Simulated assay, not measured.
Amino acid sequence: MNIFESFLAAKLFRLSMPMQNFQPDFNRIWMVSSVNRSIPADQKSDIVMYSGCFMVGANTSLSPFSISFSLRNGLRKASLSQFAYHDGRPEIRIRAFLSVLDFLESTGELPLGTVAEHKARISGPSRSRQEACDGYHDFCQRAAKDLPYELSLEALRLAA
């Protein structure tokens, strides 16, 4: 896995441990993902849906997710209602949602500022949503430290 995939895995695993006593060996984990676009794949177009999961070996899939986007004011936007994740706890869903958006922003699928914009949109008047959004940066710092040392240093730089 590249650093972006590894960092996403670390975040999603930290949010809701996928298996009891799970100690991730990032050398044995790989990501399976799919991008759907608004026009055929041979032409670069806007993302419509992104989904994926992580595999341990050949038979165990962990932390499945899916997010879809709608075009609003010329930009691709998502909402929590358009996000599927295996853990339904509100704080976990919000941080998983932001983690997937962060991954897509870091890999160039979404424009810079997407995470900040979505954080502002979803936090709203709800205190628990606001706390989940406000704590996202610290959460990323902690998740980066779950990676092997070299990857951890690079992920900490990305999370800064």
Rank of each mutant, 00 (worst) to 15 (best):
residue 110 L to S: 05
residue 93 R to L: 00
residue 146 D to F: 03
residue 106 S to Q: 04
residue 104 L to I: 01
residue 147 L to Y: 05
residue 27 N to C: 10
residue 140 C to S: 08
residue 98 L to V: 05
residue 58 A to K: 06
residue 135 G to F: 06
residue 148 P to H: 02
residue 20 Q to K: 07
residue 95 R to E: 11
residue 143 A to I: 12
residue 28 R to N: 15
residue 4 F to H: 14
residue 116 A to N: 08
residue 29 I to V: 03
residue 2 N to G: 11
residue 68 S to F: 04
residue 53 C to M: 12
residue 136 Y to I: 02
residue 35 V to I: 14
residue 136 Y to E: 06
residue 89 R to V: 02
residue 10 A to C: 08
residue 8 L to C: 13
residue 65 F to W: 14
residue 157 R to Q: 13
residue 50 Y to D: 10
residue 65 F to S: 11
residue 63 S to W: 02
residue 147 L to P: 08
residue 86 H to F: 05
residue 23 Q to L: 13
residue 116 A to R: 12
residue 25 D to R: 02
residue 121 R to H: 14
residue 82 Q to P: 07
residue 108 G to Y: 03
residue 158 L to H: 07
residue 48 V to S: 12
residue 26 F to T: 14
residue 133 C to R: 01
residue 143 A to P: 12
residue 119 K to M: 15
residue 66 S to I: 09
residue 70 S to R: 09
residue 46 D to C: 11
residue 13 F to G: 00
residue 83 F to E: 02
residue 23 Q to R: 13
residue 131 E to T: 13
residue 57 G to I: 15
residue 125 P to T: 12
residue 25 D to Q: 08
residue 143 A to R: 04
residue 127 R to D: 15
residue 64 P to Q: 04
residue 64 P to R: 01
residue 26 F to D: 11
residue 22 F to V: 03
residue 75 L to E: 10
residue 126 S to A: 03
residue 109 E to C: 05
residue 128 S to A: 14
residue 15 L to W: 07
residue 65 F to L: 07
residue 141 Q to V: 15
residue 83 F to Q: 03
residue 77 K to N: 10
residue 19 M to L: 15
residue 21 N to L: 10
residue 152 S to C: 02
residue 30 W to D: 07
residue 96 A to I: 00
residue 76 R to M: 06
residue 37 R to P: 05
residue 65 F to A: 11
residue 34 S to L: 13
residue 69 F to M: 02
residue 122 I to K: 01
residue 117 E to N: 11
residue 109 E to A: 08
residue 51 S to Y: 04
residue 82 Q to M: 08
residue 145 K to L: 13
residue 103 F to L: 00
residue 134 D to E: 04
residue 102 D to K: 00
residue 27 N to D: 15
residue 45 S to H: 07
residue 124 G to W: 03
residue 129 R to C: 15
residue 36 N to T: 12
residue 5 E to T: 10
residue 117 E to C: 07
residue 103 F to V: 03
residue 27 N to F: 12
residue 49 M to L: 11
residue 96 A to F: 00
residue 69 F to Y: 02
residue 118 H to G: 07
residue 45 S to I: 11
residue 8 L to E: 06
residue 98 L to N: 06
residue 123 S to P: 14
residue 13 F to D: 01
residue 84 A to M: 13
residue 72 R to S: 13
residue 123 S to D: 15
residue 47 I to S: 06
residue 134 D to I: 08
residue 48 V to W: 06
residue 47 I to L: 09
